Simulated assay, not measured.
Amino acid sequence: MLIDYEYFGDVVSLDTTYCTNRAYRPLAIFSGFNHHRGAVIFGAALLYDGTASSFKWLFETFLEAHKQKKPLTIFTDQDQAMAKALQKVMPEVFHGLCTWHLMQNGIKHLGNLMKDGSHFLNDFKRCMYGIDDETRFEEAWSVLLVQYNIQENTWLQSTYNIKEKWAACYMNKAFTLGMRNTQLSESVNSDIKSCMKPDLDIMQFFKHFEQVLEEKRYNELRCEFETRQKLPRLKLESSPMLRQLSEIYTLTIFHLFQVEFVLFAAAYIKYKNETQPLFEYVVG
């Protein structure tokens, strides 16, 4: 965990929605992506409760274990006590909301709007992911509230008040490594739930938890082997940049880069106006 965090700890997800026993003690999991876009766990802790003081201890202990190295960005759920503690311990770290948990909360609070062929969920996702301009976001949000007659919904009001933590147009400058999608949360959630049995004592739980870690380490070794043994297919074989990076990047990262590179190669200038002092280009 220490080595993984040293290499990949710039963006961290913290999940405390797991409970390990009948007393519902929260289990905190710090996780992130490795260079294969696989989920890695940076740390875990059993908490006594979910108060701000407990989360403050959690963040301080996590930083102490990792030589006070702070992430650039940390994603959490909408827990207010956690947000309060994070602001005290790491005020300079960007705090974003995990969109997977946000959608789960949306389904919990607004499930009645998602029945009988309703498009509410897609419209809400569009506000979250599909709009990169703040003015257009505000317009779309207003239309959403009016269309579904939910102007007075308290959950939506509180969620809107922290839109800088989840709306794509307000997070353009945040360093996220693509963690806003649900891939990481769903992967870790699936793995951890396999050892979340209320009848396990603490020793049995950690034995199961260690097995989850070992499986993740094995998956990374398998990805390393595949990267060393396989050559990626170049979409532009004459490109010296793609040839060079195919020898440096892992298969997963190279694929992500190549998609963007091909899109860049397909771009062209449809219109330009180079009248000083303003230079305007329309790219197709």
Rank of each mutant, 00 (worst) to 15 (best):
M196T: 12
K173H: 06
Q244K: 06
G111D: 12
P71N: 09
A267C: 10
T61L: 12
L47D: 07
N21I: 15
K125R: 15
N172S: 15
N149H: 11
T61G: 08
Q211T: 12
M171H: 06
G43N: 08
L242M: 04
F42R: 10
V146A: 11
F205S: 02
I162E: 08
K125F: 00
S118C: 03
Q276N: 09
E92D: 11
G50Q: 08
K216I: 03
P91L: 13
I41H: 08
H36K: 05
Q229V: 13
M90V: 10
V259E: 03
S238W: 06
N112P: 00
A168E: 02
K235A: 00
I150T: 14
D191T: 01
Y271Q: 11
R25I: 15
A140E: 08
G130F: 05
F120Y: 07
S142D: 13
H255S: 07
L2I: 14
I29Y: 08
K173I: 01
F175A: 02
K88C: 12
N273V: 09
K207R: 08
N181F: 00
K125V: 12
A23D: 06
I41M: 11
F257L: 07
V146M: 05
K230L: 13
K272V: 04
K230N: 09
S158P: 01
D15K: 08
D77C: 09
A265K: 07
D79M: 13
E138F: 03
F120T: 04
K108E: 01
S31H: 09
A83K: 13
P26L: 15
Y129D: 04
T154E: 13
H119L: 12
H208G: 09
E260I: 00
P198G: 06
V11Y: 08
